[in-house]
């Protein structure tokens, strides 16, 4: 077994391609937490996220020969995972039934513009009940459309620049910016609604 700690993802991937049997396990273990969190946030369902997690690593294994080793491994991994999650959501949404008589949500007064300074987002160590906060974050994310959710998660999980996101998603830079602005605004708004609902019910 190699001493993986000092090695980059790309070096480990190269070792895997050279036939080291432990290298691929190391890659899966190394990205397990982040990728599973990303997928859970993306599809809103832990079991589905685990399925997509497996499919993603299988896909990477199958496509190993096509990977350009001069590029970074992690963006490739997350892009494949995001594609699979998007397909799964599309499939799920296609079968979603719509309740025509569903009540129309009351809008927040003056809510068309968001001022982030007015949004209260507690840091993890301030939150009393982490599980509750986690669930609130998921509910707030679920309110976003898939396209906004994807750009928001890809950006934050990978700390990607606008240019990298544009390249990964194959959309113009200007669109990435305005989509990211919309995504942050939409998340801040739905966070406000979700946390207000929670305060009321508490």
């Amino acid at each position: 077994m190699g001493n993986w700690q000092s090695q980059t993802d790309e070096q480990i991937f190269e070792a895997f391609r050279d036939g080291d049997p432990d290298a691929y396990r190391e890659l899966i273990e190394r990205h397990h937490d982040d990728l599973l969190r990303f997928l859970t946030r993306m599809v809103g369902d832990r079991a589905a996220a685990e399925d997509i997690f497996q499919e993603t690593f299988l896909q990477i294994h199958i496509s190993a020969a096509t990977f350009d080793i001069s590029r970074r491994f992690r963006p490739w991994l997350f892009t494949i995972a995001a594609n699979k999650a998007r397909d799964m959501l599309r499939k799920k949404n296609r079968r979603k039934t719509v309740e025509l008589s569903a009540p129309i949500r009351k809008s927040e007064p003056g809510a068309s513009f968001i001022d982030l300074l007015g949004v209260d987002i507690p840091a993890p160590d301030e939150a009393l009940d982490l599980a509750q906060r986690d669930e609130q974050v998921q509910r707030a994310l679920d309110q976003l459309g898939p396209a906004l959710r994807e750009v928001l998660l890809l950006a934050y999980f990978q700390r990607m620049s606008y240019a990298q996101i544009a390249e990964d998603l194959g959309i113009p830079l200007g669109t990435v910016k305005s989509r990211m602005h919309s995504a942050v605004a939409a998340f801040a708004r739905s966070w406000q609604v979700v946390s207000k609902d929670h305060d009321k019910s508490a």
């Binding site: 397990h32 937490d33 982040d34 599973l36 969190r37 990303f38 859970t40 946030r41 832990r46 685990e50 982030l116 300074l117 949004v119 987002i121 840091a123 993890p124 982490l130 599980a131 906060r133 986690d134 974050v137 994310l141 928001l152 998660l153 934050y156 999980f157 942050v184 998340f187 801040a188 966070w191």
Partner: peptide, 17 residues
């Protein structure tokens, strides 16, 4: 605030599997 949003989104209390 932008950073806090990122922190909220990327952290999770789910146990690893």
């Amino acid at each position: 605030k932008c950073d806090q949003i990122g922190e909220a989104i990327t952290s999770s209390v789910h146990d690893a599997n």
